[in-house]
Structure formats: C-alpha cells, structure tokens
Amino acid sequence: MIKNLRELVKYRELIRNLVVRDLKARYKSSVLGFLWSLVNPLLMMAVFSVVFTYMMPSQAVPHFPLFVLCGILPWNFFTASLMGSTNSIVANGHLIKKVYFAREVLPISTVLANLVNFMLALVVLVPMLYIAGIGLTQWALLLPLVILVQVIFTLGLALILSTLNVFYRDTAMIMDVLLLAWFFLTPVMYPIDILPAQATVLGWQLPVQRLTYILNPMASLIASYRSILYGSIQGGPPGPPAFDFFLRTTLTALVILALGYWVFSRHRATFAEEV
C-alpha cells in the first residue's frame, strides 16, 4: 500500500495532465469554452429565481434560490464525480490493457476535474451572496476544509465504484437511480429542519432528522456549506457548521477513502484482464 502510494506520487503529473485533458476536451469547440463553468451556475440561479419566486414562491426560507444553489453546487460536484469515475476504468480499458501506470490516477483525475469545475462555480456564487446582502463572513474561511472533506469522501466512493464497475457493469446503471434517491434523501432542495424529528415507520419510532445527519455524510456536508455561506433559514448570518456532525463526517470520509483505496489496491492487478 505504501509502495502504491509512493508510485501514485510519481504519477502526479499524469493526474494533472488528465485533469487538463478532461477540462480542455469538455469545452473544446464550444464558443464560450471554460466560461460555461461560470455561466452554468448563473443560469441555474436564473431558473431557480423564476421558479421559486413566481411559480412556487417559498416564504419559509429567505433567498430561496440562493439557498438551493448553495446545496446544489456541491451536490452536482458529487454526482458528476461519481458518475464519471465509476466509468473511468472501463472507459479507459484500451489504456489499461496496453500501458502500465498507477490505475488510481483515472478515478482521481475525474474527481479533480470536477473539483475544478465546482470551484469555478463557487466563484460565481460569491457575487450573488453579496447581491442578496449576505456577503462573506469569516466563516467562509472554513470553505476549503469542507471542500477537502467532500473530496475525501467522494474519492473513497469513486475508488470503490470504479472497481465495482470493472466486474459488474450494472454499477453504472444502478448509480443513476441510487443518486436520484440520494438526492431526495439529502436536504438539497429543502432545509433539513422540515424533516420531522420523530416519525413512526412500521411501528418503529425513528429520529428521522438525526438519522439523516448521522447516516448521510452528504446531508452533513451540504448543511455545512449552508451554514458557512448562506446562514440559517431563519435569516441569521453565516455561522460555524455543526461541529459534532462535521467531525463525524470527516471521520466517515477518511474511513471511506481508506476502504476505497484498499478495495482498489486489492483488485487493480486484475483490471487489465477484466476490462
């Protein structure tokens, strides 16, 4: 494992080049080019503004479009990374079969390319926060930390899913549905506070809100983004994330990454035969 990690460091330049390839290829022969990474969240914002101001006005949450955007940008980063990396080994089968390189480079570079996109989108978010009168507070300095935890968590899943997809191609298919379900289970479009504290499911008393936080690292991550950028839904200014949950999520993310790397390392030797 240590040997693999050392080798991965050797291939850092390849990761860089693959990220650049991904980004360049994505915007090649489009007129706006990389500006799309900026325009995309702007347009999303416009759509949300129209929908949630005129079609489904929401009085409960102030600046609802912004509230949604703070959740949906990290969520899109998450799903795009997972979808891309799930396929990354299989899609590059011709490379795997013909060239030796550290295989984990493929899912890693997919996640990182999406990270770059996410960062560009965040750049657009900032002026909108100012327009809404929220602005940036000192809590925004925690943003790199939250992003780092999300990247760790995403990478761990990406390593597991890309391995699984080599052996069972249905992984990519089922991810569509799973991510949709996950989307609704995660408070992206709604505040977590609207979840009932207690609910009776099949005769069991379940603390739904708490369970969501505990079982769903994405819920905790998106809640953290919201607290440090958007504030509270009562209109309060941005504040610290819920630290106990955030700490737990960090630990979960690290465990998932370690697990993912272990799974990947165990199977990477057979990739060339299986893809």
Binding site: Y11, N17, L18, V20, R21, K28, H94, L95, K98, V99
Partner: peptide, 30 residues
C-alpha cells in the same frame, strides 16, 4: 513498452497537448 502507440491520445487536443499527455502516461515528466 511499445505495446500501443499513442495511448491516451485525445482527438480534440492539439498535437502539442497530446505529446505531453501521452508522455505523462508513459511516465515522462513535463
């Protein structure tokens, strides 16, 4: 290993970009 020439070439990138990309796949630093 010359098992395949131009491994990882991307059609949308220029020859220049592809030289660096293919090079890094083969383990050649920039």
């Amino acid at each position: 290993a010359l098992l395949e020439l131009g491994a990882g070439f991307h059609p949308d990138l220029t020859g220049r970009d592809n030289i660096y990309l293919n090079g890094s796949i083969l383990g050649i630093s920039r």
